[in-house]
């Protein structure tokens, strides 16, 4: 797999100018608030239009500003886990997960929902209402929902930020496990170096709408390659 991103955009007075690539496994976009991490994900998902540049996934062009090409989100096969999960409050757990499977035969849909519930440790939660779920359970429902239509890439926006630290630790481990089992490449937005160390194979350092460094996680952490990147990491390490 490879994701190639070269984009410049102006969104609400914020200027984003980033270029990076991601391989299989988990790629972390790391940086402080206002680095443009979420905005970058939104461009990859197709929720924002690329002002200049292009985005391709497995050689398939998702967006190319020069050619006026913008594949709508529903045709991109890019899953998105929102920061607050956006689990549909009016649907039960099974219907949430099945939302992206509307075009599959019923039997296949049910089998897939059951398999996903099992994978995220929510077996038996099918008919549960969203209102009664904990933060960690909601996160896993949203993860299963995003994986259901077999995306070619999964974007995760601060998937652990809304959780307390114990749940966070447990779910980090299970995310790694889910990635390994499904093989779906993931791009993870985070501002936690602990998450980067534990999860990311590949690391992109970002600040103020720019990429400061990118490479294998261990390489970037040991040699950030520039004073700004080094400063960013030092700040986070305190």
């Amino acid at each position: 797999m490879s994701l190639e991103v070269t984009l410049r955009s102006e969104v609400e007075n914020f200027s984003l100018d980033v270029a990076f690539h991601a391989e299989g496994g988990i790629t972390a976009l790391f940086g402080p608030s206002g680095a443009g991490k979420t905005l970058t994900l939104r461009h990859i998902a197709g929720l924002e239009r690329v002002g200049e540049g292009r985005i391709s996934l497995h050689g398939r062009l998702l967006a190319d500003a020069a050619a006026g090409h913008h594949l709508p989100p529903r045709e991109r096969r890019v899953g998105y886990l929102f920061q607050e999960y956006a689990v549909f409050p009016h649907l039960d757990v099974a219907r949430n997960i099945a939302f992206g499977l509307a075009d599959r035969p019923r039997r296949e849909r049910e089998a897939r929902v059951a398999a996903l519930l099992e994978m995220v440790d929510l077996a038996g939660f099918d008919g549960r209402r969203v209102r009664g779920l904990s933060g960690g359970e909601r996160q896993r429902v949203a993860l299963a929902r995003a994986l259901a239509p077999e995306p070619a890439l999964l974007l995760l926006d601060e998937p652990f930020a809304a959780l307390d630290f114990r749940v966070r630790r447990a779910l980090r481990g299970s995310l790694r496990e889910v990635q390994r089992r499904t093989g779906v490449p993931m791009v993870l937005v985070t501002h936690s170096l602990a998450e980067v160390r534990e999860l990311a194979d590949h690391l992109v350092l970002m600040d103020r709408g720019r990429v400061l460094a990118e490479g294998r996680t261990a390489d970037v952490l040991s040699d950030p390659g520039g004073p700004q990147a080094a400063e960013l990491l030092a700040e986070e390490l305190g």
Binding site: A45, R77, G79, A86, F88, P149
Partner: peptide, 14 residues
């Protein structure tokens, strides 16, 4: 919340 509609768009629905 527009997030519900946005996530639905990434799930392949019209």
């Amino acid at each position: 919340d527009p997030a519900y509609e946005e996530v639905a768009r990434t799930l392949g629905r019209s």
